[in-house]
Design a protein around this nucleic acid. Structure first.
Lengths: 103, 103
DNA sequence: TTTAATAGTTCGGGAATATTGAACCTTTGG
DNA sequence: CCAAAGGTTCAATATTCCCGAACTATTAAA
């Protein structure tokens, strides 16, 4: 019954977006999603040491920040970056953040 | 005896910088500093409703993120943005954030 | 030279957030 | 139908944040 709610980008405040990106784990997840189009939750994980519930919570935050969209496919939750929408809302922001991400 | 410690920009992680910017009050303060060169703490405040101790704490965070430099002059603490240093460390980041700041 | 005011910092405790183990829900394979 | 896979939700713990009260340092006034 897991249905997700996605905000309209115009309703996402800058602070929320920045806060979502201001975490090493979430940023890594965003980077993976930026490189991969669509990923299951477990594949979007920044590492395997992170608990499932924490991962789920991070994804929820990224959704609330308008960064990702999640849809259920079978028993998997497929995540994808809302890149063009996010870029329209905050021009240049995601590029700048990703470009400055540590190697 | 208030002497402040400023990090080398190379020691500032991206997450810390983003976290510092991911707060409406602090972002407003950064914007004011970006427009004014040098400001006393009370003049850098985002509004007058904010308690002194909270303000002081915000400034401490901005310092730790390498965003501002504080020096004591008489009984005032003068703050200025470390713009060029920050820009060298995180190219395009501050510009992108400031450009997307709400009106 | 006291005294008082200005400009902030620091400390401590309550409020708000984050993390995560355990229990749970759904879908699919056998 | 039963068990496993893939996640979510809940609740308890841990962490972080906010702000009043007390404090420090510098300057102005008396």
């Amino acid at each position: 019954m897991a249905r997700f709610t996605h905000p309209r980008l115009e309703d996402v405040p800058l602070d929320l977006a920045l806060h979502a990106l201001a975490d090493p784990n979430r940023l890594e997840m965003v980077a993976r999603l930026a490189a991969a189009e669509r990923l299951r939750c477990s594949d979007a994980a920044p590492c395997d040491a992170i608990p499932k519930s924490t991962l789920s919570n991070h994804l929820k935050l990224l959704r609330a920040a308008g960064l990702i969209e999640t849809t259920q496919v079978g028993r998997e939750m497929i995540n994808m970056l809302r890149r063009s929408e996010f870029d329209s809302r905050f021009p240049g922001l995601l590029d700048a953040v990703l470009a400055n991400r540590p190697a």
